[in-house]
Design a protein around this nucleic acid. Structure first.
Length: 921
RNA sequence: GCCUUGGUGGUGGAAUGGUAGACACGAGGGACUUAAAAUCCCUUGGCCCGAAAGGCUGUACGGGUUCGAGUCCCGUCCGAGGCACCA
């Protein structure tokens, strides 16, 4: 019987589905392990060979953990709301639900072929009302909460209202939007609308005016992480800054916690670093400058991390969008300022980025007074100061800040150095080093000391206070789209009012066209009777990250109609132990999810503070494109090695008709009608193609479909090959050459069991040498899998196979454990062999083989060399090293011992598996 | 500019500070076969000598630490990813 992967894979996939082999159930008698993939957005193109990389890795780990006795939760679902389906709908009229369902069916089909061990009963789709019920529910909870910065947690909004009732808002320490303070009496006298507005400033999900990324091309606002280089990530349309009233999530309230608890996570340093940068903590000082504009004096608060440089301040700058601009501009400067503001507004985000180096600005006419020196300094307006960060106003120290320096040079403002010996004739001196000068009481201090001294001074004199700022902004939460979760909010006499929880889910209404409505309103304005109790419902929908922020919780209890997740169920599964996905979500999904989880944690709905304990970023699979070279003006194609002798054009050729860079000539002729009569100039009888590493995309003809690999080599080969390609974290091109290697391995493995039709496994007792091969493999697999080094594990299998073949070993005692060891990687072939070995239950329920103690000892060599009880060297020797080799090794170290310590080795005591003790004199 | 990574044969890639290049691909040679496929065996970093054994050199570059460095430290060059007027 030959290895017939087609029949085997079909048989076992059907069996797994029929028997529910991978169903997960809460089971207190077993430790749990939760392995999660980032669920895919089901796009129309289907899966290519790059998508399953992470899924295969996580599947191997899940299967491995099951063998190790864990109760594994390994679910899959779909991030099904999103722009592409809606844009497709606008173009074709096809309902996004239809497109999405079709795409999901296709994805499922493709995934099923690869033999994943998902518990499909737990599948979630973010666009399913039963699912988005809980997305809407979470939003209501956020709407109904505020963030107490003293307690550092979210609290119900009713408690805040009670505080207002008693003592107004002056003493409340909360994360909130700026606004007026009011007393208890004023609060009581507020109208309904005024009360609503006041509370809105504190809610965690709130409505507020803010500068947003408006994308005209998509007709919607976008979050910061949905914009890159001034263009929308989806679609690549230009994005501009615009002030609009939008729903927002007060993510910034959690900035401190999001930053500090990063330390508790097993994530890569680079990913943590990205999140740190995105959160952008900076500790500085707010200082109040009185600004004189004509007759009036206005206090202006600025933020700086370098108060120590306050004696070097020569001007101040306001952001163009700052409210202070209108207030401070003098009548003489009014025209110039307005013209400047107009210019700034006209620019798109992209243009602003492109012009980063050009310096613009205008004088406001006002003068600020340096609170330490009493000196009068001009107040300018420039776009290099951002309204959204700090206070939107800065003190400028051109001698020690490069941006201020450029500005001062352009507008000819004074530059006063305040650090001894620094040269500011060409550029500013930004480093925090040196001794202070020209700085009154700070003179002579080291810069680092001066920073603290100045902070203390400012606080003591009541000129300002220490302040920590974060770059992390609140997330814009509404989108002017159709294909998303509707907000469970209606407007009662203009007051945003939450829908009762009993009304959830608020289902997306049917509409005839998905285009924005006539007056620029979102598509939901087209819905008939989009009201609640006669009041209008909110017309925007939630963004893509809404549905993906808590999906890992829903998998725990996907059919619960009463709660997002049952408390006991949550207490069992807790959080995700291993999360595998791409790095592109570093500043989006992974921040929002952590925020969302922390919020639910505060309210006691979940038991863990962090959602994803360990995270692995799988690399991208890049395309490997092939080229043919057409001789200009002919239909003749010249092979790579000879192309320099001709004038040629390079043409992408479908990689599926190229094998090991050799072109299949007949397939090429059949590929395109215009190539039907192509002629070739060959080298050594073959046509060699050129290649390049590019993104995998249709237009480069370098897309490899996993189905095709499953057809020709089988799913087990695909799985092994994707893992054999290299470390999971690394990006690498897909290159089908080499796949034969792992395919050969499987065929050879099969032949350990079958010689043609003959079952050749014997019950003979294994020899020590044979056991050694097995135990070497067990050790290697155990340590490598835990560190996700799958490529070396597979190598270890190949070595073991070669060894066993050389030993002509076909003994059950060896082969049976090997089947178990291989099963996470190649589940289908191993199931078949497991059955042939006489087992009736799936190999999934097998137990990971253990070392036999005697072999463990004999094969483990972790040596340290110690002199007089003090460890001097550690030497690790291969586990399979023979005793003679070990002794030779130790003899070599004798030289070392003599040289470094002047000692002579008297006796070497080698205790396998223990520390080597060397007796010296 | 800042942060994070990485640089090893023809290729993908192995090497807790301890025999660099495991394993695989490709390539070359051979066996089986009328032939091909499949399968199996041998060689395969470079250079030198040789019948064999062997020797020298070699992990981007330049220094350093160490008995010993692909690995640790400093500097330089190049690649990848992220952030970018964040005061």
């Amino acid at each position: 019987m030959e290895y017939d992967f087609k029949a085997i894979e079909k048989k076992w996939q059907a069996k797994w589905a029929a028997e529910g082999t991978f169903k997960a159930k809460e089971d207190a008698s077993k430790p749990k392990y939760y392995v999660l993939d980032m669920f895919p957005y089901p796009s129309g193109a289907g899966l290519h060979v790059g998508h399953p990389l992470g899924y295969i890795a996580s599947d191997i780990f899940s299967r491995y953990k099951r063998l190790k006795g864990f109760n594994v939760l390994h679910p899959m679902g779909y991030d099904a709301f999103g722009l592409p389906a809606e844009q497709y709908a606008i173009q074709t009229g096809q309902h996004p639900e239809k497109t999405t369902t079709d795409n999901i069916a296709r994805y499922r089909q493709q995934m099923d072929r690869i033999g994943f061990s998902y518990d499909w009963d737990r599948e979630v789709r973010t666009c399913d009302p039963k699912y988005y019920h809980w997305t809407q529910w979470a939003f209501l909870k956020m709407f109904g909460s505020w963030y107490d910065t003293d307690m550092q947690k979210a609290r119900p909004i009713e408690e805040l209202a009670a505080i207002f009732e008693k003592c107004g808002n002056a003493s409340v320490k909360a994360a909130c939007t700026d606004g007026d303070s009011f007393t208890a009496e004023q609060w009581k006298a507020f109208s309904e609308k005024e009360k609503s507005d006041a509370l809105m400033r504190y809610r965690i999900a709130y409505q507020g005016e803010t500068s947003v990324n408006w994308c005209e091309g998509l007709g919607t606002v976008l979050a910061n992480d949905e914009v890159k280089d001034g263009l929308s990530v989806r679609g690549g349309y230009p994005v501009e800054q615009k002030k609009m009233t939008q729903w927002q999530l007060r993510v910034s309230a959690y900035a401190g916690r999001l930053l500090s608890s990063l330390d508790t996570l097993e994530w890569t340093d680079s990913l943590k670093e990205m999140q740190k940068n995105w959160i952008g903590k900076s500790e500085g000082t707010e200082v109040v400058f009185n600004v004189e504009s004509g007759e009036k004096t206005v206090p202006v608060t600025i933020f700086t991390t370098r108060v120590d440089t306050i004696f070097g301040v020569t001007f101040m700058v306001l952001a163009p969008e700052s409210d202070l601009v209108a207030e401070l501009t003098t009548p003489e400067q009014k025209e110039a300022v307005e013209e400047y503001i107009k210019q700034v507004k006209k620019k798109t985000e992209r243009e602003r980025i492109a012009e980063t180096k050009s310096v613009t600005g205008v004088f406001s006419g006002a003068y600020g007074i340096n609170p330490l020196t009493g000196e009068k300094i001009p107040v300018w307006i420039s776009e290099y100061v951002l309204a959204g960060y700090g206070t939107g106003a800065i003190m400028a120290v051109p001698a020690h800040d490069s941006r201020d320096y450029a500005f001062a040079r352009k507008f000819d403002l004074p530059i006063i150095p305040i650090i001894e010996g620094c040269d500011v004739s060409e550029q500013s001196f930004d480093a925090k080093e040196g001794k202070m000068c020209n700085s009154g009481f700070l003179n002579g201090l080291d810069v680092k000391v001066a920073i603290e001294t100045a902070k203390d001074y400012v606080e003591e004199k009541g000129l300002g206070r220490r302040k920590t700022n974060y770059r992390l902004r609140d997330a814009i939460f509404s989108r002017q789209r159709y294909w998303g979760e509707p907000f469970p909010i209606y407007y009662k006499d203009g007051i945003p009012t939450p829908l009762p929880e009993s009304e959830l889910p608020l289902e997306l209404p049917e509409i005839e066209s998905f285009k924005p409505a006539a007056n620029g309103e979102p598509p939901l304005a087209r819905a008939k009777d989009w009201t609640y109790n006669g009041y209008p419902l909110e017309k925007s929908t939630m963004p893509g990250f809404a549905g993906s922020s808590a999906y890992y919780l829903r998998y725990m209890d996907p059919h619960n109609g009463e709660a997002l997740v049952d408390k006991d169920v949550n207490a069992y599964w807790r959080n995700v132990d291993l999360y595998i996905g791409g790095t592109e979500h570093a500043t989006g999904h992974l921040i929002y999810s952590r925020f969302w989880n922390k919020f639910l944690f505060d309210l006691g709905y979940v038991c863990e503070d962090e959602p994803f304990r360990k995270l692995i970023n799988q690399g991208m699979i890049q395309g490997r494109s092939n080229f043919v070279y057409r001789v200009v003006g002919t239909n003749t194609f010249v092979s790579l090695g000879l192309k320099d002798q001709y004038e040629t054009t390079e043409i992408h050729v479908d990689v599926n008709i190229v094998y090991n860079d050799k072109l299949d000539l007949e397939a090429f002729k059949a590929w395109r009608p215009e190539f039907a009569d192509a002629e070739f100039i060959l080298e050594n009888g073959e046509y060699v193609c050129g290649y390049a590493i590019e993104k995998m995309s249709k237009s480069m003809y370098n897309v490899v479909n996993p189905d095709l690999i499953c057809d020709t080599y089988g799913a087990d080969t695909l799985r092994l090959y994707e893992m054999f390609l290299g470390p999971i974290e690394q990006s690498k091109p897909w290159d089908t050459k080499g796949i034969d290697g792992v395919n050969r391995f499987l065929k050879k493995f099969w032949r350990l069991f079958y010689d043609r039709d003959q079952w050749i496994v014997s019950d003979e007792k294994a020899t020590a040498e044979e056991l050694k091969v097995l135990h070497k493999l067990i050790g290697k697999e155990q340590s490598d899998i835990e560190s996700f080094s799958y490529n070396t594990t597979i190598s270890a299998f190949m070595i073991a196979l070669n060894d066993l073949t050389a030993l002509k070993c076909t003994k059950k005692e060896i082969l049976e454990p090997m089947v178990v060891l291989l099963s996470p990687f190649a589940p289908h072939i191993t199931e078949e062999l497991w059955e042939a070995l006489g087992h009736t239950e799936s190999v999934t329920y097998a137990t990971f083989p253990e070392y036999i103690e005697s072999y463990t000892v004999e094969n483990t060599c972790t040596y340290a060399v110690s002199f007089n009880g003090k460890t001097r060297f550690t030497v690790d020797l291969p586990k399979d090293m023979s005793k003679e080799d070990v002794e030779a090794k130790v003899r070599a170290m004798e030289q070392t011992a003599k040289y470094t310590e002047g000692l002579n080795i008297v006796k070497v005591i080698v205790v396998p598996g223990k520390i080597v003790n060397i007796v010296v004199k």
